[in-house]
Design a protein around this nucleic acid. Structure first.
Lengths: 198, 198
DNA sequence: CAGGGATGTTTACAGTGTCAACTGAGAAGG
DNA sequence: CCTTCTCAGTTGACACTGTAAACATCCCTG
């Protein structure tokens, strides 16, 4: 057993919580969701199987922390894509960024949304998730009159989210999937943006 | 332990495969996804833990069979909703039906799409899934000129699928969720249908 | 220099998916 | 009719998971 060497390696590990989240994240992205086990995360952090319970109530709680990291990354990504002067264009770019994020980090994306691993109850939307939502909502708000705004925001969000899910899970017809996902995302969101009521 | 009584109860169970799928489905819908375990399905069918392996390669294979049942139900539901004379209206009704299906049977919906429990690889889209897709695609095809048709079909599919996912997982903002899901679905898909290029 | 609270460790348990080897029943062939 | 073969189901075992309870150890505060 040796830790990452640049770390403190004190034997009250220092910052286990962060180490666990980092380990969990790389487990998830390098080996898929079924490799992300509480024990594996503990092992990766060089610590006993029960240690994580000092920092997380249970496995779902660790996953929530991982997801939160994902939300922050997604929000950054959307913000970085939101640069075009034309608001319609900016909206399209956000949509493309959303889909690409899902495609590049599919396992993380599936943890962020969906199922919350356990009870079927709503998994308590974390604050960071809302801020990603806000970036998209702001663009839509600038394009749609007050009374249709809410439906339009939900529609935009649904559209990119649905496209991301279907693409990630390989659910699109081969012909649709043949073109690069980016092209497809651009066409789809473009079509949507064009149809928005002025 | 007693079987469903109307069944044969012969000692080479008769039709274990179907019994397992049925048991799995009710486990799933009555007690959530974490209750759907291979052993529990076997128990429910009155059979030993290893018996399912004579009919399914592994757990994922059972889940695939359950999902297939779900696809068939969804297709029926879409077909039944597709009755309006106005094609735009029919499209909206299909979207609403899709969202309601997801909301009424959330666990099944999550099994049908998403993750395929195991490798992150695409889970081999079953034939029945395509036929549900076809019902929606047909309506869109009647509304959109040839060259934009493909993008429009993907967009419609994405929109309702995304809305279904977000609703099921309780990801919508409270205000959006306050109205009945059906109303929301109607507004959102209506807005989309209205924006479609003539 | 106490001692107390946070942080980790050990041990244990119920449950899971799945492998290997065994058994029983119904059909096939002499 | 009796043997035999093969499919369908069983038993037992294994490695692994998440988690509870009790114990150990470090560091900080008084």
């Amino acid at each position: 057993m040796f830790t990452v060497s640049t770390e403190k390696a004190a034997y009250h590990h220092g910052n286990l919580r962060d180490a666990l989240v980092r380990t969990a994240l790389s487990l998830l992205e390098e080996s898929g969701v079924e490799a992300l086990t509480l024990r594996a995360a503990a092992r990766g952090a060089g610590v006993s199987a029960m240690a994580p319970y000092r920092h997380f109530a249970d496995k779902a709680d660790l996953l929530a922390a991982v997801a939160e990291q994902g939300y922050a990354d997604l929000r950054d990504r959307l913000a970085r894509a939101d640069t075009a002067a034309d608001p319609r264009q900016a909206l399209v770019e956000q949509g493309v960024a959303y889909v690409l994020f899902a495609l590049e980090r599919p396992a993380l994306f599936r943890i962020m949304f969906g199922a919350s691993l356990g009870s079927g109850l709503p998994p308590k939307p974390p604050p960071t998730a809302g801020s990603a939502y806000g970036i998209l909502a702001a663009r839509v708000a600038g394009l749609v009159p007050e009374e249709k705004r809410e439906a339009a925001v939900v529609a935009a969000w649904s559209l990119v989210h649905g496209l991301a899910c279907l693409t990630v899970d390989g659910r699109l017809t081969p012909q649709a999937d043949a073109a690069s996902p980016e092209t497809l995302a651009r066409q789809v969101t473009g079509l949507f943006a064009a149809g928005l009521p002025a």
